[in-house]
């Protein structure tokens, strides 16, 4: 299977970025463009969990980790820092904006406690999607 058109890849942390980029790389040969994105979760009127500037710096680290894995890919790679109260909705808005043909992600290992504490991050992607979402297996 190969991905075509523009592929949006949401990333959550430097480790997640490495894992996801590594898993996605073999499938990206025929894609026109890959858009890596990090969503800074906003409170919508409450102060954020961390300083904006701090999160923007963090997003750069996340992108660097992914770029390292995608260094050999011939596809054009673009990065976008986004802000939103809902991560999945923000990512799908981006898909509309860039005319993406698919979203690709690797679910992170999680457990009930994590899901209870921070919410299930993957489920909204595969329940509320209006374009194809490709879930790669993680190699680690």
């Amino acid at each position: 299977m190969k991905l075509t058109g523009t592929v949006v890849i949401p990333l959550a942390s430097p480790d997640d970025a490495s894992t996801t980029a590594r898993a996605a790389a073999p499938y990206l040969g025929t894609a026109d463009k890959v858009v890596l994105t990090y969503v800074v979760e906003k409170g919508g009127g409450a102060p954020d969990k961390a300083s904006l500037e701090q999160m923007e710096g963090y997003a750069e680290k996340v992108f660097d980790a992914a770029r390292e894995e995608l260094a050999d890919a011939e596809t054009e790679v673009e990065t976008r820092v986004l802000y939103g109260t809902s991560i999945s909705k923000t990512v799908f808005d981006l898909c509309d904006e860039v005319g993406a043909s698919s979203v690709a992600l690797v679910p992170r290992e999680s457990n009930r406690l994590f899901k209870l504490l921070v919410g299930d991050r993957v489920r909204p992607f595969i329940e509320d999607n209006d374009i194809p979402v490709v879930v790669f297996p993680s190699d680690d």
């Binding site: 942390s13 430097p14 480790d15 997640d16 969990k49 961390a50 300083s51 500037e53 701090q54 992170r108």
Partner: peptide, 24 residues
């Protein structure tokens, strides 16, 4: 803490972001 880390008055160790929770 973040602003102090930005000016290197404290080490960057203190201001790492949690990979899961995205918190300092």
């Amino acid at each position: 803490n973040f602003a102090m880390g930005r000016d290197k008055i404290v080490g960057s160790w203190l201001n790492e972001i949690h990979p899961r929770f995205a918190t300092p």
